[in-house]
Design a protein around this nucleic acid. Structure first.
Lengths: 126, 126
DNA sequence: CGGAATCCGAAACGATACTG
DNA sequence: CAGTATCGTTTCGGATTCCG
């Protein structure tokens, strides 16, 4: 059964605060997975192979890594290139859309650093 | 039992691609909830009361709204001001940290709009 | 009005074994 | 090497009831 999104029946609120037009929900869903942002970050640095990603993501299992990659691919953020060789070789890279997301990822990382510094300062006070 | 974070035992990788120093994981967790970004967005526009938020978020229940607000408060993104009146009145506003997150939220929303436009264009082609 | 407490189902995550 | 398939566990969202 299809998941019920925001119910479309409450329509007498100011459109400036209408959550159905704020364009946040969709990106939110696309990056919701536990490892997705980190995967995007790793791939943005350079093209990555499957095992490489698994090695760089400590503790992730093949199954979950596969699923996260498939979802990122379905959402159009990454490209999956399969080389018909033996042994098989698959490379993941950012699509144009994925690349357009990078500024956001970078600013999140910078915000995270400032946040960590903020936390350290609080530690020193106590 | 405490949840096991990234295992600290895999330490012979280039620090430039070390996921434990990339500062993405923490912000990711802070905004992971289904409604959190939208809640931040609504509060950023103006101080909001509990029922107001519930009215603006179609379909959310009191229980889950309470939890998301508490988590945002615990993470230091929003402030909860209780007025000792009858009937009770509680107002939510952004903290300085929450406010510092707003540029990211805005860029996500803009990215989302461009993405929607991109999707519409694909529809027209078919 | 603004919650708290409880319970449930669904979804996400994760471990393991197997495969072309 | 890069998965698939299966299953168990954990987390999360949501509904409901009760309360000061």
């Amino acid at each position: 059964m299809a998941k019920m999104e925001y119910t479309p029946t409450t329509d007498n609120i100011d459109s400036s605060e209408n959550v159905r037009t704020c364009a946040i929900a969709k990106p939110q869903n696309m990056i919701a997975g536990k490892w997705k942002l980190t995967i995007l970050w790793l791939i943005s640095m350079q093209t990555r192979r499957f095992n490489e990603l698994q090695r760089l993501l400590p503790g992730i299992s093949k199954g979950i890594l596969t699923r996260q990659l498939r979802e990122l691919e379905t959402d159009g953020l990454i490209h999956r290139e399969v080389y018909k060789e033996v042994p098989p070789k698959v490379e993941y890279s950012l699509t144009a859309l994925g690349d357009s997301f990078m500024p956001i990822l970078t600013s999140i990382a910078e915000w995270g650093k400032r946040f960590e510094q903020h936390e350290e300062d609080k530690q020193l006070e106590s």
